[in-house]
Design a protein around this nucleic acid. Structure first.
Lengths: 220, 220
DNA sequence: TCTTTATTCAAGCGTTCAATTGATTACTAT
DNA sequence: ATAGTAATCAATTGAACGCTTGAATAAAGA
């Protein structure tokens, strides 16, 4: 094969993947799929898009081999094609964070955000093992069931207000959710503090934890 | 700030970067810039594009903060914005390699390719230190000068045929170039073997080496 | 079998994108 | 000043994209 032809072909393949990452809507879908597999309609509801539009974006992601679909009777279950796709997404995000100052700015403008009490992932394991803190997963139940951090208690954000009595007052509570740009954990921390608990937010969420090959629970 | 507005904004920022990665031409430029800084015209010549077209693609990359420009009088010198951009590009490429079988296929169809004698990067350091092998950099001189592997001898592919006498016949020669998808090193290995040398190709090239924070030489 | 549900396909329309061309700006050298 | 060089800008073209709408499948349930 000629050199120029070879180059043209390989860059075209790489660009196919880049192109799939070039739409905010598709990244939103990818980010949701990083939490666990989902049906088309669920994605449409969560992202506020039409089902047809979601379906078409999923085709693009699928042609770029970033997601896989599995048919379950009438439904189609989509998931990330593999863990390296998550790596790619997280790398893209971290480059964006470094290079765009306004991303951090947006974050800080969100009212529930508290920058100072983030718990690094490396510190979490010992805190939980020694039972010096309690870990709660504030994502929807479905996502918790698909996979969660070891020892984490499922406490979806919408149930939290009526389940406060289940949490200890004498130990700090650490909340996590879908990741750095998800606000469930921030809301949980804000609510818990208002009610007199000591609460902190884990740095990152399920995808960051999972991508780093740390111990996990649940799923199958 | 409202949640939905927040989400829309951050995904739009992420997509700006994804979008910049969604053109084969821009990836070609990025890949060249991974070798070292370059002027617009040099990029145009190497990629066979018009200067105006290159300039416009560079604007897109610059708006995505993937490259930076520095003015040198009448000229503009472009470079990767930082090392994390290289990480992103290499991650994208490795996802592509895993997910698209035909990429490896294209590679194997190139006549000078020899899959079996790749030297892993981890083995290189001891081979060079003990002087059991000689390392040659087959990229153009400019790129060698910008930065190269320790102990590497500059031996640009187009000069190699008339400089064979500089190389030892009693030790293996290891060649590297711009990376996995660059063919200079393959060509060098093919030529050297034809002339009776023992020759091997390093796995990856300068960008892969540099991205892994290994020891380097040259540059400034 | 007929309906319902979940998803994909196909057509259409306005928008954005890639590449070309020629003009323009900014600097250098004579 | 004047010519030359390097890069960018502006206007244009056709192609590709994003989203909507409505039809087409394909499986599940009555």
């Amino acid at each position: 094969m000629a050199h120029r032809e070879f180059k043209r072909k390989i860059y075209a393949e790489f660009a196919r993947i880049g192109n799939a990452l070039g739409s905010a809507r598709r990244l939103e879908l990818l980010d949701l799929l990083a939490q666990g597999p989902r049906h088309v309609e669920a994605l449409a509801i969560e992202t506020d898009m039409s089902v047809a539009n979601v379906s078409q974006h999923l085709q693009v992601l699928r042609q770029a081999r970033l997601v896989d679909a599995e048919r379950e009777g009438a439904k189609a279950l989509y998931r990330l094609a593999d863990k390296h796709v998550l790596d790619l997404w997280l790398t893209l995000r971290s480059v964006a964070e470094e290079r765009f100052a306004d991303l951090g700015q947006f974050r800080r403008e969100v009212d529930v955000y508290d920058e100072d009490s983030l718990v690094p992932r490396d510190e979490l394991e010992s805190l939980i093992r020694d039972r010096t803190a309690v870990l709660i997963d504030t994502r929807p139940t479905r996502e918790y069931e698909h996979g969660h951090l070891p020892e984490a208690i499922s406490m979806p954000m919408d149930e939290l207000p009526k389940r406060l009595h289940e949490l200890p007052q004498d130990r700090p509570i650490i909340a996590y959710c879908r990741g750095d740009y998800c606000l469930f954990a921030d809301e949980a921390v804000a609510l818990l503090r208002e009610k007199g608990f000591e609460a902190h937010r884990l740095e990152g969420g399920w995808p960051e934890w999972w991508a780093e090959d740390r111990a996990v629970a649940g799923g199958g």
